[in-house]
């Protein structure tokens, strides 16, 4: 089913418009997803999220979309935009260079409704790799000094600490597309983030956790995760460096 609507009359200052195709699906009632089409005017700076919110404001408030910060910090508004996983708040319509913008829920994530997806599995795998410093002592207990790090030691992991858990890497991963048990690039990159931290002492337990058939060995270095990451985390690099420990290339 397709519905064509327009807000061009309301936006008299805009000179351009696109057709925004929004995937609609409610698991409780629908057998399959369908697209609804809206004509939306835009400016050079208009983001896809703003276009979706315009549709919600003027035409169909029932479109389900998750968002919060609108500045690529919270990681809530990940979705497939013209077939690629992107943050809707970080993607300008003018950058897409297309008269038709198709938005769908992120691949490889169960759909709650329309564009909103479940993050439980991503958070579960993230939690599984113990995303915290593991030590026998703590800064509070030790009366000697804080855990100092050199700038070089910080450089080893700070890139991977930029992860906002938006899930775009998992949506782009070809292994995630078929393997429901794969840990995923997000969790693996975070495993490296803590393994590479000079303050952390949990390397062996983390490596043991990911050294399994649906763990790090299912990554085939396609690199799609790194290409879609909106924060420059480069999960593919983290995963290969992590695998270097297991293969004995790194110590």
């Amino acid at each position: 089913m397709a519905q064509v609507s327009s807000v061009a009359d309301k936006q008299t200052t805009s000179s351009k418009s696109i057709t925004l195709r929004i995937s609609r699906y409610n698991p409780e009632y629908d057998d399959a997803s369908r697209f609804m089409e809206f004509n939306v005017s835009y400016e050079k700076w208009t983001t896809v999220l703003e276009a979706i919110l315009e549709v919600k404001q003027y035409f169909d408030h029932s479109v389900a979309v998750r968002y919060s910060c609108r500045q690529a910090t919270c990681g809530s508004c990940g979705m497939m935009i013209n077939g690629k996983p992107r943050l809707a708040c970080f993607t300008k319509i003018s950058e897409l260079d297309s008269n038709v913008v198709t938005v769908e829920p992120m691949s490889n994530f169960p759909i709650i409704r329309d564009l909103a997806v479940k993050f439980e599995r991503l958070f579960d795998t993230h939690h599984k790799i113990k995303p915290y410093l593991i030590r026998d002592d703590t800064e509070i207990e030790s009366d000697e000094k804080e855990f100092l790090q050199s700038p070089e030691e910080v450089e080893q992991y700070i890139q991977f600490a930029n992860c906002i858990k938006c899930g775009l890497c998992n949506a782009a991963c070809p292994t995630m597309a078929t393997d429901s048990s794969f840990v995923g690039p997000q969790a693996l990159a975070q495993a490296y983030r803590y393994v590479a931290d000079s303050r952390d002492k949990g390397k062996d337990s983390r490596l043991k956790m990911i050294d399994e058939s649906h763990g790090i060995w299912r990554c085939h270095f396609a690199g799609s995760c790194s290409q879609v990451c909106p924060k420059g985390v480069d999960p593919a690099m983290g995963i290969q460096l992590l695998r270097g420990y297991l293969l004995g290339f790194r110590s």
Binding site: E155, Q156, Y157, I158, Q159, F160, N162, A196, F221, K231, G232, V233, D234, A236, M237, G238, Q240, L241, L242, R243, G244, L247, F249, R250
Partner: peptide
């Protein structure tokens, strides 16, 4: 896969 030639971590 051994981490060779994949670059070094740095502030993006």
């Amino acid at each position: 896969h051994g981490g060779i030639g994949v670059g070094k971590p740095s502030r993006p």
